[in-house]
Amino acid sequence: MSIDTVFTHKMWNDHELSKMVDGGIPFPMLSDPGGKIGKLYGVYDEDLGLDVRGRFIIDPDGVIQAMEVLSPPVGRNVSEAIRQIQAFQHVRQSNGTEACPSGWKPGKPTLKPGEDLVGNVWNVWKVDNAFD
């Protein structure tokens, strides 16, 4: 989503993005005229007149589970966004009985919060796990 019109989105997709991604962008490109939606989400910069790089993970109940906001000159890490979605999906499937600690990705061990874990995280989670 950006403050551009759908006409500009069409030009960008059809003339540039489709040269990088086969068939063009597979998801909807949303238009936010005047930054009205950006203001709702706290990512509209009045001075620039633009929506800055805000990213929100919204669960099936419509609840925000994660957010990240960058200023314009630095781009995002898409793998990290996907990792976070996978982690929130895992927690949801476990009905909150499991937690995904730092550095978790599918295949890595989760934690089971409870009395037994207090003071024992060091036994089941190592610092190396925080990194890829």
Partner: peptide, 24 residues
């Protein structure tokens, strides 16, 4: 025309970016 609440029941990644013809 797109309404966010039509996506209830699905996971949504909502991304804002400054302008077309910039990076993500």
């Amino acid at each position: 025309n797109l309404k966010l609440s039509n996506y209830l029941g699905k996971w949504v990644l909502l991304c804002f970016y400054p302008a077309d013809f910039t990076f993500v």
